[in-house]
Design a protein around this nucleic acid. Structure first.
Lengths: 211, 211
DNA sequence: CACGGACTCCCCCAAAAGAGGGGGGCAGAG
DNA sequence: CTCTGCCCCCCTCTTTTGGGGGAGTCCGTG
C-alpha cells in the first residue's frame, strides 16, 4: 500500500502494445512496480525465480504454451505465486480453467483502469478477484451440464465432420456406443443434431477451431 | 515525415490499455501525433470532423457498432478518410470486410512496434498496407469458394441445428431446394456433412456464434 | 441476344442418424 | 456394500441426410 512496500509485478504478454500500455498505466500508481516482462510462457519461470514478484499479470492468449498452462506449471513450481489472468474475452471455460490452473483472478482487457488496479491489489494480497458478472457466469457453468472426456472426444470428431462409423474406428469402439455418447451430448446441450452440437461445442470452447 | 508536418491520428479503441499503450509507443515518433481518442464507433464521425486527422487507427472489435461498420460509414461520409484497421486476429473474412468497408490497411495487435509505425506511415500517405502473410491469405480467400447469400442463410440455420424441413418452412421454399443448397455448400467447403460445414462456417466467420 | 450463375423444384435411393429398448462392467463416494 | 456415473455393447425403429439425375425461371454481363 505504501511506497515502502510496493507490489512487484511480473508482466506476461506477447503484445508489446499491451505491455507498454500496462507499464504506462500502472506506473502512475506508486505502490505498483513492474519488475519484469515476459513475452511468452517459456520465460516466466526463470523470471519469477530471479525477481520473486508479488503478482504475475498474465495474458491468457500467448504463443506456444498459453497462459493457462503457464499458470499451471508456475503454480506447481512456486506454490506461493499469485497470478491475475488477463484476457480479451470472458469465456466461461477459460475462466474456469484459469482458476483451476491456480490463477487468483480473471480480468477482461476491456476492464477500466480502476478495476485493473483494484484487481491487482486484491490478488497481490492473496484475495480472489472476479468481476460480478463473471462470477455469475461461472456459477452457471459449474452448475451446468458437464461433458465427460469421452464425450469431448466424440464431440471433437463430430465437429470435424466425421461420421459415427469413422469415429468408432478411430476410437476403437462400436458405432452404437458412439451414437449413445452423441445422444447423451445432444441431450446435455439441448440440441438435436450434430450441427447444433458443433455450434454449442465451439461456443463453449469445448472444441477448438483452427485451420 | 518531419515535425513540421506530423501525421495526425484519431485512435479508436474501447480498451484503455490498448489506447494508452498506443499513445505511449507512438508519441516516441516525432512525426506521429495522436490528436483524439474514441472509445466507440458512435464517437468517431464527430471527432473526425473536428480534428480532421490524417489517419484513423481503428480497433475492429468495438462494442455496439464494430470497426467495420464504423469504417464503412466513415468512408461514406468522409471519402478521404484513411483507416488502418487494428485487430487481435487475422481472420480472412474480417480482413476482406475491412478492406471492402474502406480501410487501407489491416494490422494484427501482435505486430511489433516497427510494423505498426510502418503501417501508419504507409496508410497515412494513402498507400495500402497488408502484412505479407495476410495478403497471401486474402488472395486465397478471393480465389476460394464464394458462398451465395442464400447459402449463407441455409448455413446459418444448419449451424443452429435446424433440419432441412424446418429450414424449408422458415424460408418458404421446398425441402429439396434446401438440400440442393446444402449439398452445394458441402462441395464448396470440401466437407460431407452438416457438422463439418458448421465448423467451417464458424471458422470462416460466415456464421457468428453468440449466447 | 446468348451465356453463366443463382435459385428453384421434381424424382429416386442408399446410407446414415437419432431415438427407443435392453444389458453389463468398473470405478469412486457415501 | 450399495449407489451413481462413466463407459461399453446389442437390438429395432423411423426419420433424415446426402448424392445422383434432370429441368425450369430470372437476372446481369459480355
Amino acid at each position: 500500500m505504501s511506497e515502502l512496500n510496493p507490489i512487484h509485478i511480473l508482466l506476461v504478454d506477447d503484445h508489446f502494445i499491451v505491455r507498454s500500455g500496462l507499464v504506462a498505466s500502472l506506473e502512475l500508481e506508486d505502490d505498483l512496480r513492474i519488475v519484469a516482462e515476459a513475452e511468452c510462457g517459456e520465460e516466466v519461470a526463470s523470471l519469477y525465480q530471479t525477481h520473486n514478484p508479488d503478482l504475475v499479470l498474465m495474458d491468457l492468449q500467448l504463443p506456444g504454451i498459453n497462459g493457462i498452462e503457464t499458470t499451471a506449471s508456475l503454480s506447481r513450481e512456486f506454490t506461493a505465486a499469485k497470478v491475475l489472468m488477463f484476457s480479451t474475452f470472458a469465456r466461461d471455460d477459460e475462466i474456469n480453467a484459469a482458476l483451476e490452473a491456480g490463477a487468483l483472478g480473471y480480468l477482461q482487457k476491456s476492464a477500466e483502469r480502476d478495476e485493473l488496479v483494484t484487481a491487482i491489489r486484491a490478488v497481490a494480497t492473496g484475495n480472489i478477484y472476479l468481476a460480478d458478472d463473471l462470477a455469475e457466469r461461472l456459477r452457471d457453468l459449474r452448475s451446468g451440464p458437464n461433458i465427460t472426456t469421452r464425450e469431448r472426444e466424440i464431440l471433437a470428431l463430430i465437429a470435424r465432420g466425421k461420421a459415427n462409423k469413422e469415429i468408432a474406428e478411430a476410437l476403437g469402439i462400436a458405432e452404437d456406443t458412439v451414437k449413445r455418447h452423441a445422444s447423451n451430448v445432444f441431450q446435455k446441450f439441448g440440441v438435436n443434431d450434430r450441427a447444433g452440437a458443433t455450434s454449442e461445442a465451439i461456443r463453449r470452447g469445448i472444441v477448438k477451431i483452427e485451420p
